[in-house]
Design a binder for these strands. Structure first.
Lengths: 195, 195
DNA sequence: GTTGTAGTACTCTGGGCGTAGTGGTTGCAA
DNA sequence: TTGCAACCACTACGCCCAGAGTACTACAAC
């Protein structure tokens, strides 16, 4: 078992690429080798099995999806208002299209998790933690909207993400901005009257 | 090219099964043969290619997912109120767990559509039609809530579906009923004041 | 000089695919 | 009723290729 951290990370990154481009069907050691631009057989030396590879992908992908703290700070440098929440959601939505690969790979992982209990357990752990963080962040940073509002927004944004990634023609892009605004407006409800 | 309608339908059904169980990775002619309980090589005689198979799956799957008109009528035999919308959404949600296979296969198809333009076009057509129907049905049947409300509800239900199918531990089942109620309540907003 | 990793090239294996060939069934016509 | 034709189910076979693993060489670091 060879261990060169950068190379291993590069391979995992390549695996994410392959996952997004060719799906779970295309994810083979050879494909990872090719995508990483390393000689055939290399992935065999770094991962004991496909499961092992998937596990390592799981560990790395949320770093790839996770927002840049600086960017968050930039967006959050504004008074706490509904408009800010709208900005946040639009920003998240933009990140999905800009980091299409990462989010698509995540979807593939979700589907794969359906058949691999350990993967499901690990992914659930990661996603729960992320969601809890999001809720905590929202409530503690003084943004309008209660826990339920955050959850509903999360679900709707998840749905929107799925639509945009897989069948962008169903909910037209022109509508998304308006939908996000309406989403925030309605889920936060009348009591969230900051600003 | 053999054509025996029932057998062909059985094969497509088996393909849906395989798609849900083993994912796109596991969807091969041989696996379909096995799942349908027919001799190896049969699927080869019924479908010219994997693409062809996927196309026929697309055509059949929405029939499998489509609600039974009788059931709809049963649920709709109540005064037009928010509570009825909540019932409807809960009913839809229940159908997802009861017809897990169909919805999971649908998700796999969505992912596959990412790499197959014709499949994407066809799926988009189907989903758009379904969504338009849903919107039309909602507005014409006198249920409270405008077009935006329906769209937002659709998105959130899609997100909820994805969560429940792939990572049921992230949004706990105990919360879903409450979330659905809150979803309807908030998306419909104050103007939807029937009952 | 020793150790560990990159790179090359090879073989092996299995899965999947298509199809040829066979036998059975149905429908039709004489 | 018998003979014929068309069609389809089923078995079995051979081909092919992608993927995996690994032995071997080359090299760099220490």
């Amino acid at each position: 078992m060879v261990r060169n951290p950068e190379r291993r990370a590069a391979l995992v990154d390549a695996a994410i690429e392959v996952l997004a481009r060719d799906g779970a069907r295309g994810l083979t050691f050879r494909a990872v080798d090719a995508a990483a631009g390393v000689p055939g057989g290399t992935a065999s030396n770094y991962f004991t099995s496909r499961d092992d590879l998937l596990a390592q992908v799981t560990g790395q992908i949320h770093q790839r999806i996770a927002p840049d703290p600086d960017e968050v700070a930039e967006v959050m440098a504004a008074p706490r208002s509904r408009a800010l929440v709208v900005d946040l959601m639009r920003w998240i939505n933009r990140r999905v299209t800009e980091n299409r690969t990462g989010y698509l790979a995540m979807l593939e992982l979700r589907l794969e998790a359906t058949r691999r209990p350990e993967l499901q357990a690990e992914l659930t752990r990661v996603m729960r933690a992320t969601l809890d963080d999001d809720i905590g962040f929202h409530l503690e940073s003084g943004l309008p909207g209660d826990r339920t509002a955050v959850l509903l927004t999360y679900l709707a944004m998840t749905g929107l993400m799925l639509e945009q990634l897989t069948l962008p023609g169903v909910v037209p892009t022109e509508e998304t901005d308006g939908l996000i605004e309406a989403l925030v407006d309605r889920t936060i409800g009348p009591e969230g009257t900051s600003e």
